[in-house]
């Protein structure tokens, strides 16, 4: 059996647009095809690039990879790992789409188990892998917690992974707009108890969208103009009545 990990670049359209068009189709298709071939692994998209892990019988993986290389939806297919394995790591989940391999224990174990091969990679291959896997990318809260830190979201979460509830929506709206101190979020009382808020923030951390700033600089919330604020309050009242 073998394992191939490759990184490739999404082909930009004529107007310079880089979108992984057909990713949803690809996921469905590869799920079916890979079950037939018993090839399992991970597919991930980030910053205009794909990363895919393919594991299975050597001839099946090589055959599939030769087809993948010819697909016109991507280019510059670069192998970052090509090794023999005794058993597949992702047998129970087929071909799964992962938004953050950086936080995926099985992927992380696969990389650390092949540390020597990864360290021997050239600069280009290292840089490509770093788009997806960079243990130093974010400050982890695991040791310190969120107390006294300022928090911001780089993007809205994938709502298949976190509940689309009014509390989560309001929290995301705040944190995508500007950094807020963790203490002010707790004190506002809008986001449940401390442990409930921590659970949501931990999910955001796993998705790699939460930025934690521990510099302890107090942040003031910016203000909106009065007309906007009045409209906001009236809409809020209307929505309360509508529930």
């Amino acid at each position: 059996m073998k394992c191939i990990i490759y990184v490739s670049k999404v082909v930009a359209s004529g107007d310079g647009l880089v979108v992984p068009t057909g990713l949803s189709q690809l996921v469905r298709k590869s799920r079916r095809a890979n079950i037939e071939r018993s090839v399992t692994g991970i597919l991930s998209y980030r910053q205009g690039h794909y990363l895919q892990v393919l594991q299975g019988e050597s001839n099946e993986v090589d055959h599939l990879f030769s087809i993948i290389k010819e697909d016109r939806r991507h280019e510059q297919v670069t192998v970052v790992l090509d090794v023999s394995i005794s058993r597949p790591d992702f047998l129970d989940w087929g071909m799964r789409l992962s938004e953050s391999v950086n936080r995926d224990t099985r992927f992380v174990n696969l990389i650390s188990g092949n540390a020597a091969s990864i360290e021997a990679l050239g600069k280009i291959e290292q840089r490509l892998l770093k788009i997806f896997y960079n243990p130093e990318r974010f400050n982890s809260s695991q040791l310190k917690g969120y107390q006294d830190s300022n928090l911001m979201l780089l993007a809205w979460p994938d709502f298949t992974l976190v509940k689309q509830s009014p509390t989560v929506i309001e929290l995301c709206a705040k944190l995508t707009k500007a950094p807020h101190s963790y203490n002010s979020l707790i004190n506002s009382g809008h986001f449940g108890t401390q442990s409930q808020l921590d659970r949501i923030l931990e999910l955001f951390e796993k998705m790699e969208i939460l930025v934690i700033d521990n510099s302890a600089v107090q942040i003031d919330s910016p203000k909106v103009n009065r007309v906007e604020s009045v409209f906001f309050s009236k809409m809020k009242k209307f929505l309360k009545r509508a529930v």
């Binding site: 689309q164 009014p166 929506i169 309001e170 709206a173 705040k174 995508t176 707009k177 500007a178 506002s188 809008h190 919330s221 910016p222 203000k223 909106v224 906007e228 604020s229 409209f231 906001f232 309050s233 809409m235 809020k236 929505l239 509508a242 529930v243």
Partner: peptide, 17 residues
């Protein structure tokens, strides 16, 4: 449908709280 109004209002009002 109404929850979408809530989301847009939260985004618009996220400076004021």
């Amino acid at each position: 449908a109404t929850s979408l109004l809530h989301v847009i209002n939260s985004i618009n009002g996220s400076f004021s709280a």
